[in-house]
Design a protein around this nucleic acid. Structure first.
Lengths: 221, 221, 221, 221
DNA sequence: CATGAATGAGCCTTCATTCAT
DNA sequence: GATGAATGAAGGCTCATTCAT
């Protein structure tokens, strides 16, 4: 590695650190992860962490923001690749597929969503966060545009907003999950009513939402 | 001073402490509230806190569980008082009214929902939590029963589960709120697509869900 | 030791900690003393330190303020005990005796004087400091009063102020001392002109000052 | 870019760095100034700082030593320029003028004096310091010589030493200043007795000292 | 010689929890 | 049962200094 890093290399190291934090976050909760662990996991010194992120919360805010940027970018690519989406039904299927991907591959984002306000924002850097959100907003808009072009019922704004609702639904369901467990241990109960099959419930809720939305928009025409 | 408290007195003091924590939680985030503050606010000594709650997380877990017990009990009472609920449309209206109450009066529960898994369960007491959940489950069931008796389309289980979905929806939307703010400060942006009018969105989502559910259940007959 | 400490006992523990810091300060400079050392030296846990002093700087500010309170109180007692001070010459002798005591027994105060502004005030507690200064001001005034009663040439204010000048002189000379040493090691030089015999120079400077002052005040009559 | 700097260029860069540190020291205390800031202010990289000064403390020790060299050189020039200084009264006036210059233009030196022993010497380089002091001693001697030639009452040594006393007086008074402020904020008090008008008090103290000295020396003849 | 990324010892400080009284 | 003083592990974070390029 060179001794004067190019912006690209700096970004790479930032992601190296973030990746280490992300890996730890897969198995541990935010409070259980220490900067020392992240340093160890990423193979850099503790001080180096602070050259790239002002606070621990910033690392996770970065994870959240860049994670969503990646996710939405992927959604856009998948949308563009899938050219035969024209009807509302096609579109609904597409969205449910994204549900699947979000749930099966990006649980971290959904968990971070719940921590964003009450935990991360209390100590993350405002400007860094602002910059990340702007970027995210832009990607989200582009995605909305691409969708609105093909799905005439939806405005750009409505299409973009749909992904906020998607995350709300899934992370909300996650908040209510596992009430028959305690800190990942099964409790000696059979709370059937409390049980949530995340993907199934998310899909149903999303589907009903899309149906309702279609009717509403059709009616407004 | 008396040397043996009656169970009633003990319960009263427990609630005194919980009430103090609840008050603090209205204005502060979990991490910003210390046991010292709770002791001060409730007028008891720090050590006394631990006679009633094994850990700080337990206090907030208690807040969550007893708060939901109260909420669901109230819902049940309101349901029983409102005798003219018979049709699905009536029922939908009733649920949306409960949305309003939950959003305007029990925001604490929705915020605690987001912390339950990642924060509270890491240090709350398993048995205490288990007991609270059982109670809650019971109340939730009773509510489901009352509803199922009048809304023939819904089984007890389905009716009970609806309130899990309700909390999922609202607390999920809360997770995604205020992306144009940072730690309660307005950001210099106009993220229209990101904006969420909580009650309106919650009502729409709930309504669409109820519509979809009705159709599905009607179809299954 | 009781488990609910009386204010007197709390003050005693505060002084216990301060005394430990003071002892360490005899042999080490401010930056070389850590809170861990102070805890060890005083036989309490590190956390206990912070129950009594909000910051490290506060400990040393306390040392400075309480040390001066003690010093001035002692000066007052000595003044009251020495009844035969009536003339300006008697008074001069008295002051030079105090020089001796300050130099030989309270070097800590003189060293702390130099750190007060640039080091201690950057992190000491404002209110605690303010309270200490007020107390000190009061004692200083009392001393001035006692002196002014017997030395007619001096007003209360002038007499009080004299002790500020005394500290300025001595701590100023300390600032310029040991230029032929480096961190307590003798340098291989013979800087005669730079050498300061602290007590002798302080006495001379004080004496000349008192002489000048006398003439000035006599002239003003 | 050249690979070998001439001694002149090296000296220039050293002073560039020192000037940056000096500028920062005007508004901030020693502990609040970081090497990063000095690097930024001087426009060189952090690592470069260490090519010219072994430690941070060395920078400020250099500031102190070279500053005094400058100051004394200027005093000498002014003395040589002012040819009509012959009597003790003339000389006294001259010294008070130097007080004015030191106080109004070289506050940094007086503040550094207070830090020299307890802060700077703990980590400054011994040899570098020694070299600087020797130079300073030489200049101080020359100044003493020039004075002794014209003021017959004073030996070279006594004349030189006078400037040590001058700094002691002024930096000592600075140690005791602003007791009615806290970290540059006015306190809500009116500590008249504690107040010090630096230049006036310094002049009075210096004047009385010079008067006393004259009498003593006259008497010794 | 200059650079600035990396270092990591060391710092102060917090705070939930304990426990002697 | 109540108290609050004492605890001390654990934490995030700073920053002078190093050194590979």
């Amino acid at each position: 590695m060179m001794y004067v890093l190019t912006p690209k290399e700096k970004e790479a190291k930032k992601q190296l650190i973030a990746a280490a934090a992300s890996k730890l976050f897969q198995k541990n909760d935010f409070n259980q992860i220490s900067m020392a662990q992240i340093a160890h996991e990423s193979g850099v010194a503790k001080g180096t962490l602070f050259n790239y992120f002002k606070t621990k919360e910033n690392i996770f805010m970065y994870l959240l923001l860049s994670g969503y940027q990646d996710y939405l970018t992927e959604v856009l690519q998948r949308f563009q690749k899938t050219e035969n989406i024209t009807s509302w039904a096609d579109f609904s299927s597409f969205i449910l597929e994204q549900n699947h991907l979000l749930i099966s591959q990006r649980t971290d984002l959904l968990r971070l969503n719940a921590l964003r306000g009450p935990i991360l924002e209390t100590a993350a850097d405002r400007e860094q966060t602002l910059a990340g959100r702007k970027k995210l907003y832009e990607i989200n808009r582009k995605l909305g545009q691409a969708i609105a072009e093909r799905i005439s019922l939806l405005s750009v704004k409505q299409a973009s907003h749909l992904f906020i609702i998607q995350s709300a639904i899934i992370s909300g369901l996650m908040n209510m999950m596992n009430l028959d467990e305690f800190h990942h241990d099964q409790l000696p109960v059979d709370f059937k009513v409390f049980q949530i099959d995340l993907e199934q419930e998310a899909n149903q809720l999303m589907l009903f939402y899309l149906q309702g939305l279609e009717q509403k928009l059709e009616g407004a025409k």
